[in-house]
Amino acid sequence: MVTAMILAGGVGSRVGAECPKQFIEVFGKPILAYTIEIYQKNSQVEAIEIVCHEDWIDYLKKMIKKYDLSKVRWITQGGKTFQESVINGMKYLKDKLNMDDIVMIHYGAAPFSSQHIIQDGIEKCRKYGMSVSCTPCFQLMGSNDGNGKSKQWIDRDKQVQICCPQSFRYGYLVDIYERAENNGLLTKIEPHTTSLMYALGDTVYQSYGNQTNIKITTKEDIKLFEGYVLLKKREKTESLGNIKLK
């Protein structure tokens, strides 16, 4: 069984909006709804869990009904941090999943992911027990030494950009957090499950990613997503036009 755990517990203060960024509307539709639809449309994903900001759970329920997001089986309350939200979501699934089931952790404000990205995440996770969508660093990179200065060149070919989904065999996800807690890492390592893996000495296995696969962090990212939605609509219209011509 493949379950998507979509994190919608954050505030997203860097966007500067009146509501959490995952609930900002783009063309009249919340960003979170676009994100959920990625998994709603995937034939291998059987269930979706939303880890939601407590003040927005009622709104979320109405949104799920409005957009017929039928794979959403569970809603649980988010935490104050990424780690707390993942732990809440993981514990809520305890009596609902088997240890060999796959859990795909995804940001609610990361609506750019494609079906290719989701599929490869599932395949790599089945092979290695976990996977993370990674993208090569295409831009030149340098150190950030403070006061607007950079003194060291960084080899971009030795770096990857990590995004979502972050996919795990459920039993392995539980094991990561148990070991992290036993080693006193939960209050020290932020903000990702993969950060805990690095601290524990585990290997992170890469799945497909591309430069489009970002999470919305700033106002500019929202503008990018507006363009992305328009592009997808145009592609769909052109595709339907070609079918009619045939």
Score class of each variant (00 low, 15 high):
Gly16Ser: 07
Ala17Thr: 08
Ala17Asp: 14
Glu18Leu: 06
Cys19Asp: 03
Cys19Thr: 13
Pro20Leu: 02
Pro20Arg: 11
Lys21Phe: 04
Phe23Ser: 09
Phe23Val: 04
Phe23Asn: 08
Glu25Gly: 02
Val26Gly: 02
Val26His: 04
Phe27His: 11
Phe27Met: 12
Phe27Arg: 05
Tyr34Leu: 06
Ile36Asp: 03
Ile36Gln: 05
Glu37Gly: 00
Glu37Asn: 08
Ile38His: 11
Ile38Gln: 12
Tyr39Val: 00
Tyr39Ala: 03
Gln40Tyr: 06
Lys41Phe: 06
Asn42Pro: 07
Asn42His: 15
Asn42Asp: 14
Ser43Leu: 04
Gln44Phe: 11
Gln44Met: 13
Glu46Arg: 12
Ile48Met: 08
Ile48Arg: 00
Ile48Ala: 09
Ile50Gln: 04
Cys52Pro: 04
His53Trp: 03
Glu54Thr: 03
Glu54Gln: 13
Glu54Arg: 12
Asp55Ile: 00
Trp56Tyr: 15
Trp56Arg: 14
Ile57Glu: 10
Ile57Arg: 14
Asp58His: 09
Asp58Met: 07
Tyr59Lys: 15
Tyr59Asp: 12
Leu60Pro: 03
Leu60Ile: 13
Lys61Phe: 08
Lys61Gln: 14
Lys62Val: 08
Lys62Arg: 14
Lys65Pro: 00
Lys66Cys: 03
Tyr67Gly: 04
Tyr67Asp: 11
Asp68Val: 09
Leu69Ala: 06
Leu69Arg: 01
Ser70Leu: 14
Ser70Phe: 06
Ser70Thr: 13
Lys71Glu: 05
Arg73Tyr: 12
Trp74Leu: 13
Trp74Arg: 15
Trp74Ile: 03
Thr76Met: 07
Thr76Ile: 03
Gly78Pro: 05
Gly78Tyr: 07
Gly78Arg: 02
Gly78Met: 08
Gly79Ala: 02
Gly79Arg: 02
Lys80Asn: 12
Lys80Val: 13
Lys80Arg: 15
Phe82Gly: 03
Phe82Pro: 02
Gln83His: 06
Gln83Ala: 09
Glu84Thr: 09
Glu84Gly: 08
Val86Cys: 01
Val86Ala: 03
Ile87Arg: 13
Ile87Phe: 04
Ile87Gln: 10
Asn88Val: 06
Met90Asp: 02
Met90Arg: 13
Met90Trp: 02
Lys91Gln: 11
Lys91Leu: 12
Lys91Ser: 05
Lys91Ile: 12
Tyr92Asn: 10
Tyr92Gly: 00
Tyr92Trp: 10
Leu93Met: 13
Leu93Asp: 10
Leu93Arg: 04
Lys94His: 11
Asp95Met: 07
Lys96Trp: 07
Lys96His: 11
Leu97Lys: 10
Asp100His: 06
Asp100Gly: 00
Asp101Asn: 10
Ile102Asn: 06
Ile102Trp: 10
Met104Asn: 01
Met104Thr: 03
Met104Leu: 13
Met104Asp: 03
His106Ala: 08
Tyr107Glu: 15
Gly108Leu: 04
Ala109Leu: 01
Ala110Lys: 08
Ala110Gly: 07
Phe112Arg: 05
Ser114Ile: 01
Gln115His: 07
Gln115Asn: 10
Gln115Ser: 05
Gln115Gly: 09
Gln115Ile: 06
His116Cys: 01
Ile118Ala: 09
Ile118Ser: 10
Gln119Thr: 13
Asp120Val: 08
Gly121Gln: 01
Ile122Arg: 08
Lys124Leu: 11
Cys125Lys: 04
Cys125Gln: 03
Cys125Met: 04
Lys127Phe: 07
Tyr128Ala: 10
Gly129Trp: 09
Ser131Glu: 05
Ser133His: 01
Cys134Gln: 13
Cys134Ser: 10
Thr135Met: 09
